[in-house]
């Protein structure tokens, strides 16, 4: 167990707990965009930065990655911290002017758009938090989408912006996307995502279309359970 102070509050947390977790467990809110309880933290969005003090030295760290230590003093709202968060939000307001989520956080934190930043028109609502990519790789395990190029040209999508043959249409990426950038269109027996159409399978019992065939085949291959045995939706099981 580590004893530390967060925003003046004495806190005890198990060793290895990230500051973010320890703060939330104690009712201290730290804003984040790229953190998710079931996905390894990546420290990409930088909204969760906090200022830590060890002895005389203080520095800014990402609370989703930095772990609690004995004697650590954490300030989650110092002026330096707020300066970083204000910039991150102003940058995202300019990158993703269409994103309601970003606008809401900005309003909540009192951040206005920076008139010197021209608004981007080609980035949609994607903030490159990589939750979708990590879900696809680490949780689903298909690596259908990823991050290509680098710097300001970095984008999320399938390889060559076209080949989504690895995609099983599970929709986990759309589900986890914090800004609603990833579009998934659903008709009764068909689902469209990443430019590809997926045939949906109807439940053998209730007849409701509940999952893409490709996804069931993927699960079948991985688990050894036949597709026929997977053809009943969760509510009928």
């Amino acid at each position: 167990m580590a004893k530390c102070i967060i925003d003046g509050k004495k806190i005890t947390a198990p060793d290895g707990t990230p500051i973010l977790q320890a703060a939330r467990d104690n009712g201290i809110d730290i804003p984040t965009l790229c953190s998710h309880e079931s996905i390894e933290p990546s420290g990409a969005c930088r909204l969760c930065v906090v200022e830590i003090k060890k002895g005389k030295r203080s520095k800014i760290v990402t609370s989703c990655l930095y772990q609690v230590e004995d004697g650590l003093e954490v300030d989650t709202k110092s002026e330096r911290v707020m300066n970083v968060r204000r910039l991150v939000l102003a940058l995202l307001l300019a990158r993703n002017p269409a994103s309601e989520v970003i606008r809401e956080i900005a309003v909540k934190m009192g951040v206005n758009p920076q008139p010197r930043f021209k608004l981007d028109e080609d980035k949609g609502k994607c903030i490159l938090c990589r939750l979708c990519v990590r879900t696809c790789a680490d949780i689903v395990g298909v690596n259908a989408i990823g991050l290509s190029h680098r710097g300001p040209s970095k984008t999320v999508g399938p390889p060559f912006d076209e080949d989504s043959s690895a995609c099983i249409g599970c929709g986990a990426c759309a589900y986890v996307c914090p800004t609603g950038h990833i579009l998934m269109e659903e008709k009764v027996d068909e689902r469209k995502i990443w430019g590809r159409r997926f045939k949906m399978k109807a439940c053998d019992t209730c007849g409701r279309y509940f999952a893409p065939l490709d996804q069931l085949e993927f699960i079948s291959k991985k688990t050894g359970v036949s597709v026929a045995d997977l053809s009943i939706c969760t509510s009928c099981r």
Partner: peptide, 12 residues
């Protein structure tokens, strides 16, 4: 290697 990983490296 997943094609996506190859594409990531090729474009990075």
């Amino acid at each position: 290697i997943p094609l996506m990983r190859v594409y990531e490296v090729a474009t990075f």
